[in-house]
Design a protein around this nucleic acid. Structure first.
Lengths: 333, 333
DNA sequence: ATGAAAGCGCTAACAC
DNA sequence: GTGTTAGCGCTTTCAT
């Protein structure tokens, strides 16, 4: 017996309950226009027959899908947190999510293509490498909301973290502990890197620490942080702000191997509040992006575009917050 | 202007190309039965009009969806690796994947429910907490393949790692390095825990090391590994096999804090080969599950059930392999 | 409050 | 090779 041979349809329920399909449809959707008695009976029959509405047929007929497409990367831990928030936000807005993953062997273009076929009404992109012009060509077909990346186009909505502010928070925290010689490890060409670096520089100036500004080239990986740490060893500062948690982890490791104590000799602040930073033996002070706020705004943006209530502002920037853990403390001496 | 207002349909393309809808359908699917010239012209028009087939309508009509539903947990790093493999395997089999995530605030039942409405033809479940009886009730509606968990039902297919064999590999590796006093940290009630523990015990006996068998209670988290390590300190063995990588990380940390050198004083083997184990400062010897093989077999299983070519065997067990990194070496002395 | 009928975008039989 | 016809399962007028 092949499965799927006999799915229960509206017609089946209607026949069994002795009413018309239209009426069953009304009951199933909870729409007004059916008697209480009928309602109950139909519901009972539907349940008994194990009826499951066919979303495809439903959406085909009603013209809308109420579907939000999401492109995320399975390799990026932060994307998973964001998915959690997005599911909630979508549900609150009365939309469903349809996921399309980017993997090591499945590109962003493929992921977007699938979503387009699924007839979702808007697409939410997490980071990614698509060029602004490509995003624009997608945006010509349906609303696009890009999260955690910049887009030089005004036909694409953008929701992201206030990276500069995050760096300010990190520097402020360190300065309040008494640090003055604070170095920043850069994120190279990764999205947000420029903002985090600039934020660091601004904050340092604001505290009158211009002469202590020092930026070491780095990157998005653990090894980038480790390499940056090597360069620091000759003349270590009392504190370091690192582009992201992964880099901070690499840096911490090199520091430890070289006998430097954290936070005794050097304080370290990461960025992103990934699960890594929460591990007991890392216990990293870091900057947390406000996942729920970002997700909520992204969905709100998408829905506004879908329903034609544009707000004019295409860019939403969410404030992050400092999470103090064990890698920061007052400087020695 | 609301988006989605004017999607190009088959009819539009047909009108523009001056042919019938049916013919366009044939061309778009690459099905036989159309002239080369027509084919080219239709394709040109479709492209020019930016035509995108509507998968919902398509699937509704053809009765099948060629969709495989996947339930994964965003919090589990290993699930992401598996997704990568599953996308490939599905594509090879001519199926598409439709993802439904479990999050901290979105349960497995909800995730499965969505998939059911999407009319996928089979469901692949990663781990999870659903009881066997619940799985059975889903399996009554469509084929279910459960990965990385056991199911005491013969109406559900199971594809998982050979946990016992993995433990054998870990012990064999340590014994070949010269270790005899090898302790196992248990995974408590987590799926696979019993098999990994039993495998350890068997392997020890096989090597005539019965009197060195020692199992410490643990769990799936980093802290469980750390707690287990504390218990070990009084009388540390020369090597430890840990239920999973996360636990091994916690254990390593406690070992280091107490001045024990790895692998000098104690060798450590984890399980799962997660990205964590690959971090330079952890560099954990571990047992890698064969993700691609598992994904391939899971899809194969699902397709067999869908297409009604049952094989009788409902359980597939895949051999893992040892990945030697920096936490194992010969015992001191 | 309920039912009949039309049709969403597409594919599959069957004619020509 | 190409067009015609009939639905897939559902929602949505419009009658009754």
């Amino acid at each position: 017996m092949r499965s799927g041979d006999k799915r229960t349809t509206l017609a089946d329920v209607a026949a069994e309950a002795g009413v018309s399909v239209a009426l069953v449809s009304i009951v199933m959707r909870g729409a007004p226009g059916a008697g209480a008695a009928t309602r109950e009976r139909v519901q009972e029959v539907a349940h008994r027959l194990g009826y499951q509405p066919d979303s495809r047929a439903r959406l085909l007929r009603s013209g809308r899908s109420r579907l939000l497409g999401v492109v995320f990367d399975v390799r990026h831990p932060f994307h998973h947190d964001l998915l959690t928030g997005l599911y909630d936000a979508a549900e609150r807005a009365g939309y469903q999510l349809t996921l399309s993953a980017v993997t090591a062997r499945r590109g962003e273009r493929t992921a977007v293509g699938d979503l387009l076929q699924d007839r979702c009404e808007a697409i939410v992109l997490f980071g990614g490498e698509l060029r602004s012009s490509e995003l624009a060509s997608i945006a010509a077909r349906l609303p696009v909301v890009a999260m955690m990346r910049g887009v030089r186009r005004k036909d694409v909505d953008v929701v992201h973290n206030d990276d500069a502010l995050g760096s300010h928070q990190a520097v402020d925290h360190l300065v309040s502990l008494g640090h003055r010689r604070i170095t920043h490890i850069d994120g190279d060409s990764v999205h947000g890197s420029v903002e985090r670096r600039t934020g660091y520089q601004e904050a340092m100036r604001r505290h009158g620490l211009d002469q202590h500004i020092r930026v070491i080239p780095g990157g998005a990986g653990e090894d980038d942080g480790a390499r940056a740490a090597e360069k620091l060893l000759a003349d270590p500062p009392t504190a370091v702000t690192v582009f992201n948690d992964l880099g901070a982890t690499g840096l911490l490791d090199v520091l430890h191997r070289n006998g430097l104590r954290v936070p005794g000799d050097v304080s370290v602040v990461g960025y992103d509040d990934t699960s890594l930073s929460r591990l007991a033996h890392i216990d990293l002070t870091t900057i947390a992006q406000d996942v729920d706020a970002m997700a909520t705004r992204a969905v709100q943006r998408a829905v506004e575009r879908i329903e034609g209530t544009p707000t004019g502002l295409r860019s939403v920037i969410i404030a992050p917050r400092l999470v103090v853990r064990g890698t920061t403390g007052p400087p020695a001496g």
